[in-house]
């Protein structure tokens, strides 16, 4: 499989009045063609910052990329995204044509002043100016149909507020697809939706992904959703990737104490009911600086001094399972 995106040693800080937030620290991962990479992490673990930096939509300042690189199609085009000016033409083209994104709150990604149809066709004409008006219309209607909006012609002229949450999310997906992107990033696209609607959207993303030959980065704090949709999983904690690997491996054979604890702490619908083993304590403040392992204060398997003082290195097993913990030195 070909790598389509490679993120290397990425560190991003936010410089705020109250102090410095180390939002990402040495983040490494790659995305292969046609795969779904699931990113799991709790609030503040840096999931959104990661994808915002890939798309070049981080607000800088207060954010600053301190180190690292983001390469798109490292084997062929090798675009170093982190070096491109974020408002330049190249990046702008990358943003819709190659990588596009759907957000948690689809309401805020549409302008309330224009109909959904107009906004989708505008996105299309911007990137494919050669298309005639009738072509644009037929492409858009086709897309709306594909994402499961019933009678697209009727919905085309409707405004965002006339759509339900699920419908809006479908329209958002249609808009993200106008340019046939190679990577679709979905940042908690179903968190605001009901389970039945969530299931519809997950199903839709799955089918769209194979139809359009895309890779997908799917972000969620719900381990069950991630387990269901991903080929590979990236586990993040406090701005670090603590574990990554093939989905079966990470879920069935978790290596990092955080992943293990997380799996033990959530109720699972498809397994016998067991008492839950909560992770004690709470997520440290984002301003806290960790000289050693960021999970130290809550880890039940910690080794003592070394975990407190020394950053754990990344260890890669033969099957591609990576972990960053002193237990796996």
């Amino acid at each position: 499989m070909q790598r389509i995106l490679e993120v290397k040693d990425l560190s991003i800080n936010f410089y705020l009045r109250e102090g410095v937030v180390h939002a990402l620290t040495d983040v490494n991962f790659e995305v292969f063609e046609n795969e779904t990479l699931g990113v799991i992490g709790e609030s503040g673990s840096g999931k959104s910052v990661t994808v915002q930096s890939i798309l070049g939509i981080l607000s800088q300042p207060p954010a600053k990329i301190v180190s690292g690189s983001i390469r798109f199609e490292p084997e062929s085009r090798n675009l170093e995204l982190n070096l491109l000016p974020t408002y330049g033409d190249t990046y702008r083209n990358v943003r819709w044509n190659d990588i596009s994104m759907i957000f948690q709150e689809p309401m805020s990604s549409f302008s309330p002043l224009h109909s959904i149809g107009d906004q989708i066709s505008e996105a299309l004409t911007l990137h494919r100016p050669e298309l005639s008006e009738t072509d644009v219309l037929s492409v858009c209607l086709g897309l709306l149909e594909k994402v499961g909006i019933p009678s697209p012609a009727m919905f085309f002229k409707r405004y965002p507020h006339e759509f339900s949450g699920g419908m809006r999310q479908r329209a958002m997906i249609a808009m993200a697809l106008v340019c046939n992107p190679k990577i679709l990033i979905a940042d908690e696209p179903t968190t605001a939706l009901d389970v039945t609607i969530e299931a519809q959207i997950l199903e839709l993303l799955e089918s769209i992904k194979s139809e359009f030959n895309m890779s997908m980065i799917y972000i969620s704090h719900d381990l069950a959703v991630i387990g269901e949709i991903s080929d590979r999983i990236l586990v993040m904690y406090l701005g670090r990737v603590v574990e990554s690997g093939v989905a079966d491996e990470v879920i069935d054979n978790p290596l990092h104490p955080y992943t293990r604890a997380l799996l033990k702490s959530i109720p699972k619908i498809d397994q016998p009911i067991e008492s839950l083993d909560p992770i004690e304590g709470s997520i440290p403040s984002p301003f806290e600086v960790h000289t050693g392992c960021p999970f130290y204060s809550r880890c039940t398997e910690r080794l003592g001094e070394i975990c407190l003082r020394q950053k754990p290195a990344h260890k890669t097993y033969n099957n591609g399972h990576k972990v960053s913990c002193h237990l796996h030195a």
Binding site: A199, L223, A224, V225, G227, E228, I269, D270
Partner: peptide, 11 residues
């Protein structure tokens, strides 16, 4: 509802 609930082992 039961069918829609995401299941970690549904891969």
């Amino acid at each position: 509802l039961l069918d829609a609930v995401p299941k970690i082992s549904n891969r």
